[in-house]
């Protein structure tokens, strides 16, 4: 076997992930094309493309040796993997948001520990957030377009990721609280990290040397 197998997330942090891998000396040009392939075999490594939320699954099970994924996904799934490095890129915030005209009332209701209905793609993060605050929530798990939920009365507020806040604004949602911040992380399978330590350390050091991360 030659070369590591790397899980690369499609979507928002795809570009950042490729830049980090390029900085580590991998040839990733083939991945930039608009192909539909899921596996790219290069001379120095093999790349698999997956949904961001599936990256930790591939890595935890050893189907990929390393992967790049947002901290938000790691906090939601708590996979048993080694988090090697904060790449510093792909910054975004996990926020609690509500419709503009309801915002004040929601704030009050939450602070009075009333049960509020929250739609989110991150049910465990949401549940944990409300529990740690001593507040109560009814969590509704969705797979996309969470902003839609308060507009049609499915939920009263949402917990979601935002980078620039544009989507929130367009849907007349305002931020009530910031739950956490997230950046892209390099993760490794536990076995691969030990059995192929030299290769993985070389990769981390190459990324560090290149200074791709903004920290």
């Amino acid at each position: 076997m030659s070369g590591l197998r790397v899980a690369v997330p499609k979507g928002a942090i795809f570009g950042d992930a490729l830049r980090a891998l390029e900085a580590a000396g991998f040839s990733v040009e083939a991945l930039r094309g608009n192909g539909r392939r899921l596996v790219y075999r290069e001379a120095d490594a093999e790349f698999i493309l997956s949904r961001p939320s599936d990256v930790p699954v591939f890595v935890e099970y050893g189907a990929a040796d390393i992967g790049i994924v947002g901290k938000d996904v790691l906090e939601e799934q708590e996979p048993n993997v080694i988090e090697l490095k904060d790449l510093g890129t792909g910054f975004c915030r996990m926020v609690l948001a509500a419709p503009e005209r309801e915002a004040e009332r929601m704030q009050q209701r939450i602070s009075h520990s009333e049960v509020v209905r929250v739609a989110t793609k991150f049910p465990r993060t949401t549940q944990r957030y409300f529990e740690e605050m001593g507040r109560q929530a009814e969590v509704i798990a969705l797979h996309g377009s969470v902003e839609l939920a308060p507009l049609v009365g499915l939920a009263e507020c949402i917990v979601d990721l935002t980078a620039t806040g544009t989507t929130l604004r367009e849907n007349h949602l305002v931020v009530l609280d910031e739950i956490s911040t997230s950046t892209a992380r390099l993760i490794s399978n536990r076995g691969s990290y030990r059995l192929r330590n030299a290769e993985i350390v070389a990769l981390v050091e190459a990324i560090e040397r290149s200074g791709v991360s903004i920290g």
Binding site: G62, R190, G191, L195
Partner: peptide, 11 residues
């Protein structure tokens, strides 16, 4: 200590 085998991601 943990024992690993290449190709299996778990201990």
């Amino acid at each position: 200590y943990e024992a690993y085998s290449p190709g299996l991601g778990f201990t």
